[in-house]
Design a binder for these strands. Structure first.
Length: 983
RNA sequence: UGGCCUGUAGCUCAGGUGGUUAGAGCACACGCCUGAUAAGCGUGAGGUCAGUGGUUCGAGUCCACUUAGGCCAACCA
């Protein structure tokens, strides 16, 4: 170590040689200004008809089809849409660049309730009533509404950089789509998979319409409550003569009672009334089965003054019990057996511990009843659910003894049904007690009047009925499960999730009592129940053809136009009289579940099945599910080969975004402030298979990453301003250049693998790390000297330029699917031209010869020694002995033969960016710098000797020895000579 | 309440079949450079791998439970 002052201190005044250097020069700005630049690039792509060019370029290539799951045409994009569409765009762009013809056709889901609501809302604002508007006028307004939002959303998707056939998207409401959807449904009818069943739905008597859960609001309401005896008729002998007691707030549902539910988790007891007032409903000597926790309350309500518990009743004993209906004495209408069924929904918080179960009047009741369908059949019990209440809230003939009584009036007030039922129960001696209860009860959003649960006819598809004449066990469920096994899932858990849903799901309910949708275009014979079309109908094809023609010309409105019955049925049946036209529409899930038919099969530029579907994980229940069932029902297999799912986007703290918390991130805001490429980088950086987070901090971090990428690209562009495009043969490249090509090849493999496996964060981190660690912090830093200062003729310089051009070309192409705007901007810097676009390029080949693991190993050793040198220089810097590393000329004692060999033949000073360096195997002096990780290298941090070169800033003894250029190194003098000769 | 999933440094992510002091990039702190300059380079400090209990010679990695969170279970898409 020397203490002599730095020899630069007395150097001659430095001449400014910067004009003689090959410094980076580019118009590619450091600051992107993406919010302004991106729309211009979109306009450019429009102008050059990039989409058409992409298709032309790829014509004849193998197709790779990502089928777009249609968003609902309602409202502006939110962050979830942005994530979804950007992921899809990354996939189609990367596949296109891998050499496929990867066409993307965006689509929209148009039918359904939310749009009906909006249109209805507009009606209400104008004081119009939906029911007074002709249905096809109403449908036309819904169509118009959807069209408006499709335009808005298409622009918003394009602003994200999404490339696709936005001029010809698909919609579920296109006439051609409606024709396919309707005829697809007919296929289910023809193969016998469609049947008419029933299900309870929320029903508003006032509006005479079914309501969705979201159309219902809960308000306080005073209900009549009753406690009713169900006499035990068989089962546990110890309960002979006793009654099971139920409690209900809807006495009018008693005629619909078919079972009593109990819970195996509740303690029950057998009780006897020992003391009661004269004329009381509950009489001395009567025995009741009740939940222990509720017995006292029940007896109190029943005005019983004395009771005893005779025995505990085990839940096991209840399972085989059958009761009589409390009205079994009434005109013979209720003589069926009422079974006890175990139900998890039963609690002992309120009531009696037994729940009156009317499968036509409650969701849980219905589900419990359907669940036990087979057991009931085995017990000889008819599982048919009665239609006890009609549209107007009147009890029907299915409620013998009460026909014509009314649950609710047209104004939503209580009718006479409850009173009639209570009187009948009292007359039958079945009442234990009655009361009133104020509780929350569902009301219609529109009329603010109470609603009821009412059994209604619905259309179902069998999950477990053998299909057609196929093999035994060929059911929709079996087909779907097989199809799931044959599908690849990213992430794999999606397979489990979808499988368990298909395994457990009930029959598919297709019908909705709504206006805006595709009809279930079938007829039903009201006398025989026969369906048309159907397995036994001779004119299935002709009927489907007639329907298709009509829908293609007029859309599904044709079904709702006057005279539809004659139009579609005449000539196919002898007597039109008994045939009733089904007016229900299809669940919109059937619409979107059919997109593969009218998009993938319907367009020659696509193919069926799709290579991949990509949606949020909620679509296991939605689009993945309905598409699978629809296709399995019709085609027998899934419409997709692979399913990719993404999680949901959370706020920065990992919790759900919500308006009230004010933690929402809107894609429009991100685009306005930072640009779509920043949002896209966020998508690329995240583990989207799981839920992701987004927020200011995270977006800032992505902006930083973007800047790093941009600056690295910018430096390459600036450097390449001095490149004449001449290639240097691989064999002539210096080791450092070959090392970079090796590293690039490794990154390339990771990038392509990442794109193939839909693992974009791997692509992102691979590129970013390479740029940071290998390029910016190492290769570029080392090579600046040669690139800036070497003579034009220098092989090292020419080789470096060639390799920088190669790095640039590969990296920018690999980035193109992630950041299409910036990649295009960078591309055009070097490849200008009206027809030029990076998106028309393919991912570049990576020559086999670039891979050189031995070289990589060797340079790992070089870098190890380099770390020791930079470590030593850091100490010098701290001690203020040097500033720039060029002020140093360390002596490096390498105490390991392998490490020493690795340095052989290399200009190690250049690699360490020092002016001079001495590598020696001589023993190191005491106090030499060592890394504390045990690297067998010691460094003496000496100062460089000589004068500072005014051009390259290196400090070398040779400076001053050239007579023409006395203030520079010999290398720089040579460069200046060449320059002078050239100019 | 049930089905599926997740919790590794401030942030985003790596951590095949369990095996040395748990890694990277960014951010942060400090320093250098001033010919990538609203840039570039270096060094450093950050983690009881959500918690508890088990299996094991040994667990971030396997099991159970707990806890926090997400999706689904709607005539919602």
């Amino acid at each position: 170590m020397t203490d002599t002052p730095a020899p630069t201190s007395d150097a001659t005044p430095t001449r400014d040689y910067s004009a003689t250097l090959n410094l980076p020069a580019t118009d590619f700005p450091m600051r992107a200004g993406l919010p302004e630049k991106e729309p211009k690039l979109i306009a450019r792509w429009d102008e050059m008809r990039l989409y058409e060019r992409l298709r032309d370029t790829a014509r004849g290539r193998e197709k790779f089809v990502l089928h777009d799951g249609p968003p609902y045409a309602n409202g502006h994009l939110h962050i979830g849409h942005a994530l979804n569409k950007i992921l899809k765009d990354i996939i189609t762009r990367s596949r296109q660049m891998m050499g496929y013809d990867s066409n993307y056709v965006p689509g929209w889901d148009c039918h359904g309730l939310p749009i009906e609501w909006k249109v209805e809302e507009e009606y209400r604002a104008k004081g119009k009533n939906k029911d007074e508007v002709p249905i096809n006028d109403f449908r036309a307004e819904c169509r118009q509404y959807a069209e408006g939002w499709i335009k808005v959303q298409a622009e918003e998707f394009r602003r994200l950089g999404v490339e696709g056939d936005f001029a010809n998207p698909y919609t579920t409401m296109a006439f051609s789509s409606e024709a396919v959807i309707a005829t697809e449904l007919l296929k289910f009818a023809v193969s016998g998979q469609l049947y008419r069943g029933s299900k309870p739905v929320m029903w508003s008597v006032v509006e005479r319409t079914a309501l969705a859960e979201a159309e219902v609001e809960y308000q306080d309401y005073q209900s009549d409550t009753i406690w009713v005896k169900f006499p035990v008729t068989s089962g546990a002998p110890e309960l002979a003569g006793a009654s099971v007691v139920i409690w209900t707030t809807t006495p009018w549902t008693i005629p619909g009672n078919r079972a009593v539910s109990y819970s195996p988790k509740i303690a029950y007891g057998l009780y006897e009334v020992t003391e009661a007032p004269e004329g009381n409903w509950a009489k001395v000597g009567e025995r009741y089965v009740l939940a222990d926790a509720l017995a006292d309350a029940v007896f109190k309500q029943a005005k019983v003054t004395g009771h005893i518990k005779l025995a505990a009743v085990a839940a096991d004993a209840l399972s085989s019990v059958t009761c009589a209906h409390p009205l079994s004495g009434l005109g013979g209408g209720y003589t069926f057996d009422v079974p006890l069924l175990p139900g998890d929904h039963v609690t002992d918080d309120a009531g009696t511990g037994f729940v009156h179960t009317a499968p036509g009047h409650g969701r849980e009741d219905f589900e419990l009843w359907m669940e036990h369908g087979r057991d009931l059949a085995a017990r000889g019990i008819d599982a048919t659910i009665p239609f006890t209440v009609d549209d107007g809230g009147y009890l029907t003939a299915d409620a013998p003894g009460f026909t014509g009584r009314r649950v609710l009036t047209d104004k939503g007030d209580k009718g006479d049904a409850n009173q009639a039922v209570i009187e009948a129960l009292a007359a039958a001696g079945a009442m234990v007690a009655r009361g009133r209860l104020k509780h929350t009860y569902p009301h219609s959003w529109r009329s603010k009047k109470p609603v009821i649960f009412r059994n209604t006819p619905q259309w179902f598809v069998y999950m477990d009925k053998p299909i057609g004449n196929g093999p035994v066990g060929d059911t929709l469920r079996a087909r779907a499960l097989k199809a799931i096994d044959d599908t690849a899932f990213y992430p794999p858990a999606g397979q489990t999730r979808l499988r368990s849903m298909i395994e457990n799901r009930p029959d598919w309910v297709l019908s909705r009592q709504r206006a805006w949708g595709v009809p279930i275009a079938v007829f039903r014979n009201t006398e025989t129940g026969q369906l048309l079309p159907g397995p036994d109908f001779a004119h299935n094809d002709a009927y489907a053809g007639r329907l298709r023609e009509a829908f293609l010309a007029e859309g599904a409105d044709a079904w709702f136009a006057d005279g539809a019955k004659e139009r579609f049925l005449s000539g196919f049946v002898d007597d039109l009289g008994p045939w009733s036209q089904v007016r229900d529409i299809l669940d919109v899930w059937f619409d979107s579940g059919s997109t593969h038919e009218f998009v993938l099969k319907g367009r020659p530029d696509l193919k069926w099945p799709a290579d991949v579907y990509l949606e949020g994980s909620d679509q296991h229940r939605g689009w993945f599910h309905s598409s699978l069932l629809e296709s399995c029902g019709v085609n027998g297999v899934a419409p997709y080969k692979a399913v990719v799912t993404h999680g949901f986007t959370m706020a920065e703290d990992g919790r759900k975004m919500s308006k009230s918390l004010g933690n929402q991130v809107q894609p429009q805001d991100v685009i306005r402030q930072s640009g779509a490429d920043i949002l896209r980088l966020w998508v690329a950086s995240t583990d989207y298979w799981e839920d992701q987070r987004i927020g200011k901090k995270i977006l800032d971090a992505n902006s930083d990453a973007y800047r790093k990428i941009r600056n690295t690209v910018r430096w390459m562009l600036g450097t390449l301003a001095h490149y004449d495009g001449a290639a240097v043969a691989y064999a002539d490249l210096p080791e450092l250049e070959r090392l970079m090509l090796h590293k690039l090849a490794v990154v390339g493999a990771e990038v392509v693998e990442g794109y193939k496996e839909y693992d974009f964060k791997a692509v992102f981190s691979s590129i970013l790390n390479f740029m940071n660690i290998e390029l910016s912090a190492f290769y570029f830093d080392v090579r600046k000297d040669a690139l800036y200062c070497d003579p034009k003729s220098s092989l090292k310089r020419r080789a470096a330029l060639h390799v920088v051009a190669t790095l640039y070309d590969h990296l920018v192409k690999w980035l193109a699917p992630l950041t299409p705007f910036t990649a295009e901007e960078a591309w055009l810097e070097r490849h200008p031209g009206e027809a030029s676009s990076i998106h028309l390029e393919l991912f570049p080949d990576v020559p086999e010869e670039w891979l050189d693991a031995a070289l990589d190993d060797k340079w790992e050793k070089v870098k190890k020694v380099r770390r020791a040198v930079t470590g030593a220089l850091e100490i010098e810097r701290r001690e203020k002995r040097i500033g720039s590393s060029l002020e140093a000329a360390p002596v490096v004692h390498v105490e390991d033969a392998d490490l020493l060999a690795a340095l052989d033949g290399l200009d190690f000073a250049e690699i360490c960016i020092t002016s001079q360096i001495t590598v020696t195997e001589a023993p190191a002096p005491e106090g030499a710098f060592r890394l504390d990780d045990g690297t067998p290298v010691a460094v003496e941090p000496r100062l460089a000797e000589g004068r500072k070169c005014a051009r390259s800033w290196k400090i070398l003894p040779e400076v001053g020895s050239d007579p023409d250029y006395p203030d520079v190194t010999l290398r720089d003098a040579e460069a200046l000579r060449e320059l002078a000769a050239g100019s």
